[in-house]
């Protein structure tokens, strides 16, 4: 088994969308169900956390800047750690996450080399 990190990438449209409280409730339910499913099946190692939207970047010349000035594309909104036998299996798990269904992407990365 190998560990994979899921980085949830949210598109600017997704971040601008103002859901109604009812919609928020539905989205939350999807995530709770998915995480519970992961805990039961054993592939969820750590639900992880969300990252606040504010983002700074430190480059090689040690300059600090607002990340938005570098790339205005998707931002990483949070992460989770999962366990899977292969990249293919990890991808299948990622497909089942609520992220793609709400317009975001999941970057699946092997932890370690």
């Amino acid at each position: 088994m190998a560990r994979y990190m899921f980085l949830y990438r949210e598109s600017p449209e997704q971040l601008q969308h103002q859901p109604s409280p009812e919609e928020m409730q539905q989205v939350m339910q999807l995530w709770t169900n998915w995480m519970q499913q992961g805990a039961q099946a054993g592939w969820l190692i750590d639900g992880g956390d969300a990252l606040k939207p504010e983002s700074r970047s430190v480059d090689a010349s040690l300059e600090v800047s607002d990340t938005a000035t570098i790339e205005a594309k998707e931002v990483v909104g949070g992460y989770s750690l999962i366990e899977a036998a292969s990249l293919e299996e990890a991808i299948e798990i990622a497909k089942g996450s609520p992220m793609p269904h709400s317009g975001g992407s999941v970057e699946v990365r092997l932890v370690g080399h």
């Binding site: 991808i91 996450s97 932890v111």
Partner: peptide, 19 residues
């Protein structure tokens, strides 16, 4: 933390996969 290996993929909103 840890480096993240080159074994990687991105699952997009339309469920297409770049791996």
């Amino acid at each position: 933390g840890s480096p993240l290996g080159s074994e990687a993929a991105i699952v997009r909103p339309d469920l297409s996969v770049t791996d």
